[in-house]
């Protein structure tokens, strides 16, 4: 079972995660308007910027984050922003959307000018996250674990970050055991998605380059 302290931590993270959203108007644009490839590029760029802004707000609420060295805070956010964005978009993509919206979203992304070489692994990732049928709690904790990864480039105080990440991993582990008693591999599978995210992060720079060239 989760201890009282762990339960408080979980609820706190979940609450912060639920508030972490891009403005609704921007999300509506994505589904309602018809844009040219250029306008698609600008809209997706604005959404990415907005995503980083709300991600920072979520991250500020992670217990202990604000007591970290300021440059380490930036190194953690810089290292994880792309992964958190893919994780978040995987969650949105796997949600039950109104009829036709998933197709429209996929179509818009596919027509944004990014090569299939980069688009396909992204949709494969979305599908592999979808198969896990993650709860909101699992998404919140996995995002926190991703952000508080001590092995990001330019991090100085690895130990302090490990101390913040560990309780999140413990809560996630216990939560998985409680909610998936018949699937002992669930926790390991969640962590496996983090490995996939690292690969997507690695290819992200090349993906942006191909987007710009196109």
């Amino acid at each position: 079972e989760l201890t009282q302290e762990q339960l408080s931590l979980l609820n706190y993270i979940l609450d912060a995660y639920n508030k972490y959203r891009i403005p609704l108007d921007m999300a509506k644009n994505l589904l309602q308007e018809q844009f040219s490839a250029d306008e698609n590029f600008i809209l997706l760029t604005e959404m990415a910027t907005s995503h980083v802004q709300v991600l920072v707000e979520f991250t500020k609420r992670l217990p202990g984050f604000q007591s970290l060295d300021h440059e380490d805070q930036i190194a953690l956010l810089k290292g994880s922003a792309v992964e958190a964005m893919f994780l978040r978009s995987a969650q949105i993509f796997n949600r039950k959307l109104p009829h036709g919206h998933s197709e429209m979203l996929e179509d818009r992304i596919r027509k944004s000018g990014i090569s299939d070489e980069y688009i396909n692994p992204m949709f494969n990732f979305y599908k592999s996250v979808g198969e896990l049928q993650m709860t909101q709690e699992e998404h919140a904790l996995l995002t926190a674990v991703t952000i508080l990864s001590p092995d990001r480039p330019f991090v100085k105080d690895v130990l302090s970050i490990e101390r913040l990440q560990e309780p999140m991993l413990e809560v996630l582990h216990t939560f998985c055991k409680l909610h998936h008693p018949h699937n002992p591999q669930h926790f390991a599978r969640l962590l496996g998605r983090l490995t996939e995210l690292r690969t997507l992060n690695h290819h992200h720079t090349e993906m942006l380059m191909s987007w710009r060239v196109n």
Partner: peptide, 22 residues
């Protein structure tokens, strides 16, 4: 670092300070 990561860092720094304007 690439131009992209500088842009990302600028957004992060502004957001950490609570500035969203530009």
């Amino acid at each position: 670092p690439s131009g992209n990561s500088i842009g990302l860092e600028a957004i992060i720094r502004k957001a950490l300070m609570g500035k969203y304007d530009d």
